[in-house]
Amino acid sequence: MKTEIRSLNNTGLATFSSWLEDPSGRAPIQILNDVAFTEAVDGGYMVDLSRTFATSYHFGEYLAMEVFPSDVDRFSLLANAGMWSWLSLAFINSLLKKGGVGAGKPLAKPHYILQSPRLAYRLIGRTAWDLVNLHGEAAKIALGSLRSPWGEMAEQMTARQEIYAHRSFWPVANALYSAPNGIPKRGATSQRTTKARQDPRNQAGLGGVRRLPLTFKQFERTYNLRKMTDEQILALLPKEYQRWLAS
């Protein structure tokens, strides 16, 4: 059964926020269609509240392919913070920790409620829709984790504005760091430590996703990467990246 998307008002946001701070009981999904906690959203967008999603990529794919039309005003939709919080609550069971310590509990509040423009990229539903809308299947590298709705790869690839919407960056990152099952390869998000830099034989962090934005920035002084294919860019990459293509 489909339900029309609404927006959490200040009362609804406060109710959801309180549960996120102390998720000892069930999420307050009873407020989703209550006019005391929500407001109407222009567009008449409908969602199936019975749907569940194994990954944030699948959630974003559903929103991009089945909920919001391709010609929707992107910036107007991104700006509707209350609507994204409503969607966070509506699909909260797909957006909780998947395993380990705290399994079944929510992540930090900015992943569900917009708390500041600086942290808008961490709002899972909003960013999942936007990335699939911008990059298609290449967005899976950031959103395809089966272990968490927001893994370290998502953080690294969305926190930097210069690569967030870079249409050439995402296919290259996907080719380098995506395993055959779509999840990030082990070690792809590792940081190059001081100890590793002092040992020429230590490859930890080399060619990882933390270094790729810098490589792109250096290349863009000479090449127009936005007009090149991912194959052309991959052929230009320094030797440190080759091990990721071979793995």
Score class of each variant (00 low, 15 high):
residue 197 R to M: 13
residue 46 M to C: 01
residue 217 K to H: 12
residue 169 F to N: 00
residue 154 A to K: 03
residue 21 E to H: 14
residue 48 D to H: 06
residue 37 F to Y: 15
residue 89 L to T: 03
residue 9 N to A: 09
residue 235 A to G: 05
residue 201 R to W: 06
residue 142 A to W: 01
residue 185 K to S: 03
residue 236 L to M: 15
residue 139 A to V: 09
residue 21 E to M: 12
residue 1 M to L: 09
residue 37 F to V: 00
residue 158 T to Y: 04
residue 189 T to V: 10
residue 38 T to I: 08
residue 64 A to K: 01
residue 14 A to V: 06
residue 47 V to D: 04
residue 22 D to P: 00
residue 68 F to M: 08
residue 148 S to A: 08
residue 229 T to R: 11
residue 162 E to D: 15
residue 142 A to C: 06
residue 107 L to R: 10
residue 245 L to N: 03
residue 42 D to Y: 14
residue 44 G to Q: 12
residue 243 R to I: 06
residue 86 W to K: 04
residue 11 T to P: 00
residue 34 D to G: 08
residue 58 H to C: 05
residue 235 A to F: 06
residue 210 R to F: 05
residue 205 G to C: 09
residue 25 G to I: 07
residue 88 S to P: 06
residue 28 P to C: 09
residue 91 F to N: 00
residue 7 S to T: 08
residue 223 Y to H: 14
residue 9 N to R: 07
residue 8 L to M: 10
residue 96 L to E: 00
residue 179 A to D: 10
residue 127 T to F: 04
residue 28 P to T: 06
residue 230 D to I: 00
residue 203 Q to F: 10
residue 247 S to E: 11
residue 48 D to M: 08
residue 169 F to E: 01
residue 101 V to Y: 10
residue 77 L to I: 09
residue 4 E to P: 01
residue 50 S to G: 09
residue 230 D to T: 10
residue 95 L to K: 08
residue 124 I to Q: 01
residue 17 S to E: 11
residue 128 A to L: 08
residue 189 T to H: 13
residue 50 S to F: 07
residue 223 Y to N: 04
residue 116 S to W: 09
residue 8 L to E: 03
residue 192 R to P: 04
residue 239 K to V: 12
residue 51 R to Y: 01
residue 153 M to T: 11
residue 14 A to Q: 14
residue 126 R to W: 05
residue 202 N to M: 10
residue 78 L to P: 03
residue 207 G to A: 10
residue 240 E to R: 15
residue 156 Q to F: 07
residue 200 P to F: 10
residue 70 S to H: 12
residue 158 T to V: 07
residue 64 A to I: 02
residue 43 G to V: 07
residue 24 S to R: 14
residue 42 D to R: 15
residue 193 T to S: 15
residue 164 Y to K: 13
residue 110 P to Q: 11
residue 166 H to M: 03
residue 44 G to H: 11
residue 93 N to T: 12
residue 206 L to N: 13
residue 116 S to N: 14
